[in-house]
Design a protein around this nucleic acid. Structure first.
Lengths: 110, 110
DNA sequence: GGCATCCTCAACCAATCGGTTGACTATTGG
DNA sequence: CCAATAGTCAACCGATTGGTTGAGGATGCC
């Protein structure tokens, strides 16, 4: 629904937000728990979650006093489809995937 | 080489830059020709091309007094691979692709 | 040589970004 | 009821963004 690629790519351009997405890939989390591993304020995390929500990348649902956050992969898929439109003139490159795995497992997988 | 996903996603977050990439998908172009369809200044386009170049998405090569711009899909592939890491826990969704094509062919294909 | 063309650089501008702090609202639990 | 917990909101800050204009350096052409 959010055909707004601007918002999706902007949301993905921040390493903190990508790390949040990676955390939510494992499980849904409360806002406070999302914030725990980071050294920035809870309010800053709340803003990041707002950016991700507005981009359609996550959903936030308030139950009691806890706001639960979970991935919403639709927007991510649209971004992926957009990108793949550029890959089509070249076959899928497995070398790139291998290089990605190398560097990603070596460094922080943000 | 440019493992900087920040720069790649930031570059993709601007509709003018995505449109430039779409144009370069068809053919290499001189800076002036890239700027022609847009209503902003040549200097602004030059800055956009700088952002795309620093992100590793395009290459610029000066021949004579003309600077030629062409796609460099490596960075795009890394971004695609990163995104697809999130899609793996769900099977590829062709519905999303169809919806994408519908909206994309209806609106401006930026 | 001299002029037009191609492009970048530098300075500036308003708007946005990522972050902080402090106040505030709700909800939970003793 | 009262205190602690969970989270957002608003104001503010410095840095960055996307845009402008004007100057100017290379290069190509007559």
């Amino acid at each position: 629904m959010p055909n707004d690629l601007d918002a999706v790519f902007h949301a993905l351009s921040d390493p903190t937000r990508r790390e949040i997405l990676r955390m939510l890939l494992e499980d849904d989390m409360a806002v406070t728990d999302v914030a725990a591993p980071f050294s920035i304020s809870l309010a800053a995390i709340s803003k990041h979650l707002g950016v991700l929500t507005r981009a359609g990348l996550i959903r936030q649902e308030k139950r009691g006093r806890v706001t639960w956050c979970g991935l919403d992969p639709d927007a991510l898929r649209e971004a992926s489809v957009w990108i793949q439109g550029f890959g089509q003139f070249e076959p899928v490159n497995l070398d790139a995937f291998e290089r990605f795995l190398e560097t990603e497992l070596k460094d922080d997988p943000a």
